[in-house]
Design a protein around this nucleic acid. Structure first.
Length: 576
DNA sequence: GCCGTTTTCGGCCCGACTGTTTTCAGTCG
């Protein structure tokens, strides 16, 4: 069992205990341990062999015992008992915004609802308001929440899909007879939400891949099984499809499974216009091979006199026309990123020191990074008082004297308060190298109020970047009521940079909005918002989103040299 | 549940907002 699987098990235990009404601190211990396992570098199974599970932060005697059982048997008696005790539908209800464990338990006790369907019915028939402490607004929130869940039902955020895919990929590769395994489908195209995880394996005859994978401990049920195809559902509810092909058919199958269907259709059209047989170009309508042998995907495009089109662009949104005209963008890559401009440290709610963040940034080959803590009003995140902010600037200055290979920018993620003012006075903001303004409160305000706040922030002379512009959380929270188009116009007018927040929970701006920003000439920056040094790796999600938005290095300020970036920041402050 | 220059008990992030009340509990970031 991997750390990720263990973390999921602990997470579920925590959720179920919370619904049961366990002590909040105990519940939090489970959730904290799950986070800790996810981020722990070494595999718990290795530590277990050495009897060192308790070296993982947040894992004590009790949790170590539960993890040991999971590692030894793939099962947990404790979790199985909890699952028997608490209907699984109750845990799903926790995902409804505004419903916590207490409310879920109350609904269960009073209305005996155990599934989302039953809860929806109870809300529709106005029975929820009979529960003490609940009224019509709660009913509405439940109905809206269920609607949100339904929209994303069967779909999971890219971050979860990618971890799961990597886990299955590694395990497939370890099986005899497996030569190659790659991710395909919408996950390979970098979509923010994916319906299932598609994996394609090149296999030799006589392998037992399907037998082994069908019995995998993560697998709850086998949805379909054919000669060369297995469709599974994991305990976490994710659909995983595994396709097997002989090595010589790999390229065509990988291309086919990557999609999108629209991209394939347009390529077929092009082939016909060129008087070619689509099948002979590897553009089959189905997965079965027709004896076409191609070494790599580029051969498929080459046969149509096209340059290679990367998976992120294969959506049938003009990429083929651009390829024909020789106008494909030179998309941003991870190597183009020269720095990360949004991260937190132990000074506020981060887990690493500034020096640890610097070391991690150096490891990535960055030339610069910005430390941007939360501002004073965000108490929950230990937002910095003016005194602490100044003290941190002093530490950053001293570190900058010490390091010659990398530059630390003293920044802030300042809250845009409910009235549109910023959380520090102008002279404080003026003393910083970089100011990100973000909304962390008053999500429920009207579009008028929210837009007035954002406009005020964008017009502020010292705001350089608007952080996570819409506030959406994938599969968890809709964007707050903002007009993204108007934000982009205002950014263009005021010279404000818009953030692509790379956190796989956010991806905000979306690829669509980032593309629109580019059309308006608004530069973006791709930031991780990391709260520890490991999450600087989340930059991959932001870069992938930017690639889906057709962005090139010149469109992204943290692909620029430090001189150019600083000149831009300075010039913009003078302009306003 | 975990953890310890507060060390084997007693803390553990805390304040704003919302919806429901009529003084507050639950949720969220």
């Amino acid at each position: 069992m991997t750390n990720l699987e263990l973390a999921w098990a602990l997470e579920e235990m925590g959720d179920l205990l919370e619904i049961k009404g366990e002590e909040p601190f105990k519940v939090r211990a489970y959730h904290r341990a799950a986070r800790s396992l996810e981020q722990f570098e070494e595999e718990a199974s290795v530590l277990f062999c050495r009897g060192e599970l308790e070296k993982i932060p947040g894992i004590g005697k009790n949790l170590a015992k539960k993890i040991a059982e999971l590692l030894e048997t793939g099962q947990s008696t404790f979790l199985n008992n909890l699952r028997r005790e608490i209907p699984s539908g109750l845990r799903q209800m926790l995902a409804i915004p505004g419903l916590g464990a207490k409310s879920v338990r109350l609904l269960y006790e009073h209305l005996h609802v155990t599934t989302l369907d039953e809860l929806e019915e109870a809300a529709r028939s106005k029975r929820v308001r009979q529960v003490p402490g609940m009224g019509s607004k709660t009913e509405l929130a439940i109905l809206r929440g269920i609607e949100l869940l339904r929209e994303t039902q069967e779909k999971i955020p890219i971050g979860i899909a990618r971890s799961l895919a990597e886990m299955f990929r590694r395990q497939l590769l370890a099986l005899p007879g497996v030569e190659r395994v790659e991710v395909a489908g919408s996950l390979r195209r970098g979509c923010e939400m994916v319906g299932d995880v598609d994996l394609l394996a090149a296999v030799r005859p006589g392998n037992e891949v399907l037998e082994v994978m069908a019995g995998h401990p993560q697998v709850k049920e086998v949805l379909a099984r054919e000669e060369n195809h297995l469709c599974l559902r994991t305990w976490t509810g994710v659909k995983v499809e595994i396709f097997l092909v002989p090595p010589e058919k790999y390229t065509v199958a990988w291309f086919y499974l990557t999609g999108s269907a629209e991209h394939r259709r347009k390529l077929q059209e092009l082939a016909r216009r060129q008087g070619k047989d689509p099948a002979a170009c590897g553009l089959l309508d189905r997965l079965e091979d027709e004896g076409i042998k191609l070494d790599e995907e580029a051969d498929i495009y080459r046969s149509l006199q096209l340059p290679f089109i990367v998976p992120e662009l294969r959506e049938g949104r003009g990429e083929i026309e651009a390829a024909v005209a020789g106008l494909l963008p030179r998309l941003v890559t991870l190597e183009d990123i020269k720095g990360d401009l949004h991260m937190h440290t132990r000074w506020s709610d981060g887990l690493s020191s500034i020096e640890e963040m610097v070391a991690a940034a150096r490891q990535k080959g960055y030339a610069y990074l910005a430390i941007t803590e939360h501002s004073r009003s965000l108490g929950v995140a230990r937002g910095l008082s003016v005194e602490k902010l100044l003290a941190q600037q002093e530490e950053i200055r001293s570190l900058n004297r010490k390091f010659t290979d990398i530059t630390i920018l003293a920044g802030i993620e300042v809250d845009i308060l409910s009235d549109g003012s910023l959380d520090y006075a102008e002279e404080i903001l003026a003393s910083l190298d970089l100011v990100i303004a973000s909304i962390h409160s008053g999500f429920q305000q009207s579009e008028e109020q929210l837009m007035a706040r954002i406009e005020a922030a964008l017009r502020h002379p010292y705001v350089d970047i608007l952080g996570h512009p819409t506030g959406r959380m994938l599969a968890r929270r809709r964007p707050y009521a903002v007009d993204v188009g108007r934000i982009i116009e205002l950014a263009a007018e005021t010279g404000t940079i818009l953030e692509i927040n790379s956190s796989p929970d956010r991806l905000d701006l979306t690829a669509e909005a980032a593309l629109r920003a580019k059309e308006y000439g608004v530069p973006v920056c791709i930031n991780t918002d990391a709260h520890d040094c490991y999450h600087l790796d989340d930059i991959w999600y932001g870069v992938t989103t930017a690639r889906r938005a057709w962005l090139e290095p010149q469109d992204i300020v943290n692909c620029w040299d430090l001189d150019k970036l600083q000149a831009r920041l300075k010039r913009n402050r003078h302009k306003r």
